[in-house]
């Protein structure tokens, strides 16, 4: 259980010449549950976006499951849970349809959905407690239920690594509990987790290690700091504006 799943070495990321991450190094080994903590704008979301290749590295390297990220193709081994569902598209989609997207990494673009896909979608929905909502439009769900839909989408691909961006931000207590339960099952099944959080809440007992990002660098890597700690404090000063915005384009959502 010590093979490195994620290796970030001396990574730097900048937007428009403004440095967001500087010389960041981080290793996550199989079976670990690592929380990335920090204030808004500290660069913690940028860190996991860089790990996933959603923002380009200015310097340094990222290695996923022993393969340099640039050449990494086994995306089915990773389940990504974004901060929230895209701004809401014009066309309705059911919970089941959104979760079924999670099978594409495994199935590929051309193969039609089969029985294994349907079973994986159903079990992912059960894991987050939404089995009875599969046929409902996503737009009719509460924020917490939508967040659970996104984690079900990631689980449906049966990944080995879950990467979550602020999964509990603005989520009701029932959903936070359901969420913590799904994450615990995932960890107990041997999964590795990297999650970004502003505050841990019910996830706290699950976290094995915390990494605190402050002003673009890692200032703590080890035990989960006390909530009163300077950098993990929920109301910590917002030093920079949020830095995970992509240029909005015509064909993008």
């Amino acid at each position: 259980m010590t093979a490195p799943v994620i290796q970030v070495a001396h990574a730097a990321v900048g937007y428009d010449g403004r440095a967001v991450l500087r010389d960041v190094s981080l290793t996550v080994t199989a079976g670990e549950v690592v929380a990335v903590l920090g204030a808004n704008g500290s660069g913690k979301s940028t860190l996991i976006r860089a790990v996933l290749g959603l923002v380009p590295l200015g310097a340094g390297s990222v290695t996923l499951f022993g393969t340099p990220q640039r050449r990494f193709r086994q995306w089915h081994r990773i389940g990504y849970v974004p901060q929230r569902l895209g701004a809401g598209s014009g066309v309705p989609a059911t919970v089941g349809e959104v979760v079924a997207s999670g099978r594409l990494a495994r199935r590929g673009v051309l193969r039609p959905s089969g029985r294994a896909d349907r079973e994986a979608v159903a079990s992912a929905l059960r894991a987050v407690g939404l089995a009875d909502r599969a046929g409902d439009p996503v737009a009719t769900l509460s924020g917490g239920q939508q967040q659970r839909t996104l984690i079900a989408r990631a689980l449906a691909g049966r990944p080995e690594l879950l990467v979550l961006d602020e999964p509990t931000a603005g989520v009701d207590a029932a959903s936070q509990e359901a969420f913590a339960g799904a994450l615990r099952d995932f960890r107990d099944g041997g999964g590795t987790v990297l999650l970004v959080a502003h505050e841990l809440g019910p996830l706290r007992p699950l976290i094995g290690r915390a990494v605190v990002v402050h002003q673009g660098g890692i200032c703590h890597d080890g035990a989960v700091p006390e909530p009163a700690g300077h950098h993990a404090e929920p109301g910590h000063d917002h030093v920079h504006p949020h830095c995970d915005e992509e240029p909005a384009g015509l064909w993008s959502m």
């Binding site: 959603l54 990504y80 598209s89 989609a93 997207s101 990494a105 673009v109 691909g157 993008s252």
Partner: peptide, 16 residues
């Protein structure tokens, strides 16, 4: 559907 619904997720899924 995946690309139009959530382009970033589609990218992390390894879709072209």
């Amino acid at each position: 559907f995946a690309v139009c619904h959530d382009e970033e997720y589609a990218r992390v899924s390894g879709l072209p």
